[in-house]
């Protein structure tokens, strides 16, 4: 069983991060933007875990855990906001967010 090189995992994290960023920038629908942010956060976590594996330290996974916490909190608030927006003003177009008032 040949061990995996963490460096390759880092490269994968870079690719996933780029894809997530592209999603955030391209999509206008808030729910898709939120998903893309999830992808980006996940890529960050992957980079942390790979780093931890490279040095054989637990810190990488601890950081991943914190990223996970952050994602959970962010998603709960973000989804609540999306629901609110949908009921108040039936569109999820982020480009009309600049008409936000009050």
């Amino acid at each position: 069983m040949g061990a995996v090189a963490p460096a390759n995992a880092i490269l994968l994290a870079a690719i996933l991060f780029g894809l997530g960023l592209a999603g955030v920038l391209i999509r206008r629908n808030l729910i898709f933007m939120l998903m893309s942010i999830e992808v980006m956060l996940n890529a960050t976590g992957l980079a942390f875990v790979a780093g931890g594996a490279r040095w054989g330290q637990a810190d990488g996974q601890v950081m991943f855990l914190l990223v996970l916490t952050l994602a959970a909190a962010e998603i709960s608030v973000g989804l609540a906001l999306i629901l609110l927006l949908q009921t108040r003003r039936p569109t999820l177009d982020s480009d009309v967010g600049n008409r936000l008032k009050g």
Binding site: A5, A53, R54
Partner: peptide, 19 residues
């Protein structure tokens, strides 16, 4: 990275102790 180093396993015990 200069040299490719293999991943080393980090178990839940270590993570828990660090946490």
């Amino acid at each position: 990275h200069g040299t490719i180093v293999a991943a080393r396993e980090v178990g839940p015990v270590q993570v828990g102790l660090a946490l």
